[in-house]
């Protein structure tokens, strides 16, 4: 796969797109997996990830977090990142989703199981 770009695009459910450094976006195991050519997902070809369950506001914070994390990777006594309280619940959901190392099929199945 020749087109391992430096930047990748993350698109929210309400069609806001965020262009972020690949190196910081792959902090999320889910995104890393999506973009890994070895798995052959469509995302890895277009270098674009669509998130149907994350809206623009939340995704913006997530991207902010990616950079915050990368910036403070080797430092200690890091100040906490600030975000509005009303976003925290949605962010928890997003974080849980993006943190999952389970393959997507299983993941979505788990979600369906939970719904039932």
């Amino acid at each position: 796969m020749a087109s391992e770009t430096e930047y990748v695009t993350l698109v929210s459910s309400d069609d806001y797109s965020f262009v972020v450094l690949r190196s910081s976006a792959i902090k999320s195991p889910a995104i890393k997996r999506m973009l890994d050519p070895a798995y052959g997902f469509a995302e890895s070809k277009t270098n674009t990830c669509h998130f149907e369950n994350i809206n623009g506001l939340v995704l913006e914070k997530v991207c902010e977090y990616f950079y915050y994390y990368q910036k403070h990777k080797d430092s200690k006594d890091v100040a906490d990142m600030d975000f509005p309280i009303e976003l925290s619940l949605e962010l928890v959901m997003a974080a849980d989703y993006l943190d999952s190392t389970v393959p997507f099929e299983e993941n979505s199945k788990r979600r369906q199981d939970m719904l039932i």
């Binding site: 990777k73 619940l89 928890v92 974080a95």
Partner: peptide, 26 residues
């Protein structure tokens, strides 16, 4: 390094526990 996003969110929610009405289906 930085805390995980999950940790940050959870701490935030705990700090504002009085304002949380419902946690939804987390």
């Amino acid at each position: 390094g930085a805390k995980s996003l999950m940790q940050l969110c959870i701490e935030k929610i705990a700090a504002h526990h009085d304002d949380v009405e419902e946690l939804g289906d987390i």
